[in-house]
């Protein structure tokens, strides 16, 4: 009897070990034929459906870029829509290959939750939005306010810290998605809505009368947002990281979706030639990508600046300035390592 149970146990353990020790993420993605990308449940400018029901936005375009790098086709892509609460579980349980959902890079997420942030694609900070008629002009005057907050986010923790350090009280109104926050805010269930400043701009832009609401000047935290993957697959993390770097570098080098194909025929700048596949980029094969991977990213999706302008920039409803998200040469923080 004992032996039977033990042998069954052994077989079971061996079986599950075999299942869990699967191949690398890149092989999985290739075999499946599409990239499974975790994105927001709806945040205008970052990830939201357009009037034809196609999902568009800044975070969506990054997913498209990775699909273009892996498959040479930005459309080989499916989305999993995740709330602030479900996103990490989905990534860690291999439900998605990549999370591109305005997620803040923090120490504990990187180390304790064992996630690998592949870079920062939006330098953000937490802000507060409030109806103009309440006549509040500073976050320090929010004592006693009811505050709508997305649960399971870093903003939840920052908010608690901000009110405690300033000796103020507040009533949290926890909600799951941006859409719920909007409903509660408009019904005046909460006086204030707090989230990343970019998210506030997005929400405010989608209100009927954006002019009736103000975003308070205080930015109470650093929120470097970026895409992330699981710990333990460096090849896949490198693909995600260098796809982002390629988009940033392309803007710096003046490569756009329009001129990329022409430049790929050869230029006088060896770094452009290496990026677009005209000259040898040492180590590319080890990454498992084709020679024209970056060309595909840039020609099909665009460089960082193009993606920013199309989704978040001054000409869009959000009307965000580049600010910290400008190239380092223009006084911003974007700085791609060299392609060499």
């Amino acid at each position: 009897m004992k032996a039977t149970i033990l042998s069954i146990l052994g077989a079971v353990v061996a079986m599950t070990m075999a299942v869990s020790a699967s191949a690398g993420t890149l092989d999985d993605v290739r075999k499946r034929g599409h990239l499974q990308c975790g994105v927001n449940t709806g945040l205008p400018g970052f990830a939201a459906p357009d009037d034809k029901g196609v999902w568009r936005g800044f975070d969506i375009d990054y997913c498209r870029a990775v699909a273009a790098a892996v498959f040479g086709d930005a459309s080989k892509l499916k989305f999993t829509h995740l709330t602030g609460k479900t996103r990490f579980t989905a990534l860690r349980s291999r439900e998605i290959d990549l999370l591109s959902r305005n997620t803040t890079w923090t120490f504990s997420r990187d180390v304790d939750l064992q996630l690998t942030f592949v870079g920062v694609n939006y330098y953000d900070g937490q802000g507060f939005m409030i109806p103009k008629k309440l006549g509040v002009n500073s976050a320090k005057k929010l004592d006693g306010a009811s505050i709508c907050i997305q649960t399971g986010t870093t903003t939840e923790l920052n908010l608690s810290d901000f009110f405690r350090t300033n000796g103020m009280k507040y009533q949290p109104v926890p909600i799951e998605t941006n859409a719920e926050a909007r409903t509660n805010y408009l019904a005046e269930r909460c006086d204030v809505y707090t989230t990343d400043a970019s998210g506030l701009a997005a929400t405010r832009a989608a209100l009927d009368k954006p002019g009736d609401h103000v975003v308070l000047p205080e930015i109470v935290s650093k929120e470097p947002l970026g895409p992330l993957v699981r710990h333990g697959d460096d090849q896949w993390a490198d693909i995600a990281r260098w796809t982002l770097n390629a988009m940033v570098a392309a803007e710096e080098m003046g490569i756009t979706s329009k001129n990329a194909k022409a430049m790929a025929k050869g230029t006088k700048n060896p770094e452009i030639n290496r990026l677009l596949g005209k000259e040898k980029l040492q180590g590319r094969e080890a990454l498992g990508l084709s020679a024209d991977w970056a060309l595909n990213v840039i020609s099909q999706v665009g460089n960082y600046g193009e993606v920013f302008e199309a989704n978040l920039g001054p000409k869009t409803a959000l009307g965000l300035q580049r600010g910290n998200n400008a190239q380092w040469k223009n006084g911003g923080l974007l700085y791609a390592p060299p392609f060499r």
Partner: peptide
């Protein structure tokens, strides 16, 4: 009873294996 315990063992084994894979 054997099948029952084997199922439980499989579940526990699965969780343990995945925890090990995630270094948790």
């Amino acid at each position: 009873v054997l099948i029952f315990f084997a199922t439980i063992a499989w579940l526990i084994g699965n969780v343990t294996a995945n925890f090990a894979a995630l270094d948790k």
